[in-house]
Design a protein around this nucleic acid. Structure first.
Lengths: 147, 147
DNA sequence: ATCGTTGCAAAGATTTTGCACACAC
DNA sequence: GTGTGTGCAAAATCTTTGCAACGAT
């Protein structure tokens, strides 16, 4: 945990930004809720518990900054809000998501399912792949069992 | 073209909705700009050329309706707006996209790259896949040649 | 006459920006 | 001191909703 904060601090400093208290609290919230795909508003409320003086704009600015630095990925599951997802340590590909259409739960998959698909795209379409987004929509295990 | 409008009319009527003039103009605009991933505002402006009395709210309502009927897919490439994409005739999977990070162009891929990946997800994660979204981010052919 | 549909305007929700002040080096 | 970073409020953007009027059956 502290280790990962250090890495993020390094990433900020490399780009000449500081790890201010506000930014550190925001990062901690993201680390503590790594599986939850928080919206900016979600992050703001959780940060506010630990650091009540913070403003919403600062949270937005921090999230945008961390997205630019590729510490975070900004994702969108089709409801009106952007959500933020920490990039895994050393992961050079973005992980995939399974979104349940019944209960709305989101599961993450680390396994890279796209190795072949990327080769095809590079070869057949002359497109240089740098990143990808893959989301499956369907019914999760729990909701299948309910029926 | 007329053929496809008839099919969409059928889809509407099956769900007890009418193909009003406003809706028809909207559908025509979508068909004529099938490759362009228009935003609601884009659609509105193009519809307005043909049917100046239309209101923006009607366009939004039509787009939402057609999305519910699975005639359209609502997609989001990370800029602030939702875009709408006609589902291909008889396509039971959503096509994929190649988004160029240089010039912003969006290319479509019809080929299904996810057959194996879906099997993996169904088997290893017990997740029943009903649909998917796959977008590759990278550099398109043209922009690679420029460099 | 009923009921879905529309246009307009207003409201809502999310995100961004302007600006004066605070803080670190 | 210089310049980045912050908080607040206002603005901007995108989308949805309320409501009276319209139109087809």
């Amino acid at each position: 945990m502290e280790n990962r904060i250090e890495r993020i601090k390094d990433a900020l400093q490399e780009a000449r930004y500081k790890l201010t208290p506000q930014r550190e609290v925001t990062v901690r919230v993201l680390l503590e809720n790594e599986k939850d795909h928080l919206s900016a508003e979600d992050v703001f409320m959780k940060v506010k518990d630990k650091y009540p003086e913070i403003g919403l704009a600062t949270v937005y600015r921090t999230l945008e900054l961390l997205s630019d630095l590729k510490v975070l990925d900004k994702i969108n599951f089709g409801d009106g809000v952007s959500r933020y997802d920490l990039r895994k340590e050393g992961a050079n590909h973005f992980h995939h998501h399974l979104v349940c259409m019944e209960c709305g739960s989101v599961e993450e998959i680390e396994e890279d399912l796209l190795i072949e698909a990327e080769k095809t795209v590079e070869k057949d379409y002359n497109f240089k792949v740098l990143d990808h987004r893959l989301t499956f929509h369907g019914i999760c295990k729990k909701c299948q069992e309910k029926e």
